[in-house]
Amino acid sequence: MINCEKASTICNKKQYKEATLFEQIQLGFHLLYCKACAAFSKKNKKLTILCERAYLHNLSELEKEKMKEKIEHNI
């Protein structure tokens, strides 16, 4: 038996494929009787799908540093 805190952590790990099989079974069992976690889990999964679909891009820290330098230069 796991508590909700543990369940949410496993659920988060699962979004990044870092939950072990045992953890996933624990989570699955918890979701059977915990409505709150089941709702969270569903939303969490959806967020993962949204992030994937949005195909997010970010600038690397190095690129940002370069930009900052250029701005400093021009202030």
């Binding site: 997010l56 891009h57 600038l59 690129e63 940002k64 701005i71």
Partner: peptide, 30 residues
Amino acid sequence: PASWVDQYADYLFNYAVARVSDAEIAKDLV
């Protein structure tokens, strides 16, 4: 302006990438 890069660079970059679909060009535009 000193906080522009930290606050908005990614947001603007994403906006640009979605429109020019080239990361290098998008970076230059930002």
